[in-house]
């Protein structure tokens, strides 16, 4: 089976969940078409609620649905889901322990032509500050579908960072995924490249190929769950390689890189390099331009890895 568009895989997961469990409901804030969930609405019109362009109201409504026994998924672009409705998600959902699954789509540079206003380089940071919240960002359609289904039954709230446009599968059908358990895509002994999301995991794999060409044995790990961090695996590879890179479509400060750095600095101080946004706002452009502009590509990962290894053991 060929890869599906990420948002189609997302909607498929929701429809399959809803077919088996009538508690599953979906909320959108006038981005149903963009987020690819029209098929859910067509199939379950009474379990779909469009809140209009009112994300704060949508997230609090989802909390109300949850405390009365429903399992809501609510979505908007990541910039709105995280920034605009943060207090609602913090208080009505997380503090109140209402089991809501929030989805932020078009994270980071994947907002492309919507530009800087729509580019969330800080949503992981905001969400990391919410006690107990599960944050995940799958890298392909197979893991996305599996993890959405698992998130539905995770006992607490979840935040899905969803790259919605694009179709490529990294995994085979039937591969199993667990929230909080990262996937080793390629083992390696010289350096561990931890990457998150649809854009960076494939770039990390490409970089590992380039490094192999120079005789450097790089491990690549798909860190699909950002919180809780798979500490066991991170520690294992830090010990094994002594050099860790983290790649993310987000600010390095407050993002995945800083989560890994904090963990390792307390447990096994390790040489690190972080690929991500460095204290900048986003800007408009196509994906190729933005990847180059912000250095979110294999070439940069490759160069930074060499740099890191050059310093290794100093």
């Amino acid at each position: 089976m060929s890869a599906r568009d990420m948002r189609d895989a997302y909607c498929e997961a929701l429809v399959e969940l809803a077919e088996e469990d009538e508690r599953i409901v979906l909320l959108e804030a006038d981005l149903m078409g963009a987020n690819g969930t029209t098929a859910f609405k067509e199939k379950f019109p009474k379990r779909f609620f469009n809140a209009g362009v009112a994300e704060a109201n949508m997230v609090s409504m989802a909390a109300g649905l949850a405390v009365c026994g429903k399992i809501p998924f609510a979505a908007s672009f990541a910039c709105f889901a995280a920034r605009r409705a943060y207090d609602q998600f913090f208080i009505s959902v997380n503090y109140a322990r209402a089991k809501v699954n929030l989805t932020g789509t078009d994270p980071g540079i994947s907002a492309v032509f919507n530009g800087g206003t729509h580019m969330s380089f800080e949503d992981i940071g905001l969400m990391r500050g919410i006690p107990g919240l599960v944050i995940y960002e799958p890298a392909d359609d197979i893991s996305l579908k599996a993890l959405v289904k698992e998130a539905a039954y995770h006992p607490g709230p979840t935040y899905l960072r969803l790259h919605r446009k694009g179709a490529s599968s990294l995994y085979a059908q039937g591969e199993e995924f667990r929230l909080g358990k990262a996937k080793v895509l390629r083992d390696g002994a010289d350096i561990a490249i931890l990457a998150t999301g649809y854009l960076l995991v494939p770039e990390a794999l490409k970089a590992a190929e380039l490094l192999a060409g120079e005789g450097i044995d790089a491990a690549v790990i798909d860190l699909h769950t950002i919180k809780p961090l798979d500490e066991e695996l991170v520690l294992h590879y830090a010990k094994k390689t002594g050099a860790v890179m983290v790649c993310e479509n987000h600010q390095v400060a407050t993002g995945v890189g800083s989560a890994v750095a904090m963990f390792l600095s307390e447990n096994l101080p390790t040489r690190m390099q972080c690929i991500g946004i460095r204290d900048e706002f986003g800007q408009v452009g196509d994906l190729a331009f933005l990847k180059q502009r912000f250095g979110l590509n294999a070439d940069r990962i490759f160069h930074k890895a060499r740099e890191l290894l050059g310093r290794k053991g100093e």
Partner: peptide
């Protein structure tokens, strides 16, 4: 705080959110 006090149906305190939550509850019921 619904998690602390018997009989409290919803956690509130950040003003402006409760009516929206009540809508979700009314929809569910």
């Amino acid at each position: 705080d619904r998690n602390l006090t018997p009989g409290i149906d919803m956690t509130t305190g950040s003003l402006g959110q409760g009516l929206s939550v009540a809508i979700g509850m009314a929809l569910a019921d």
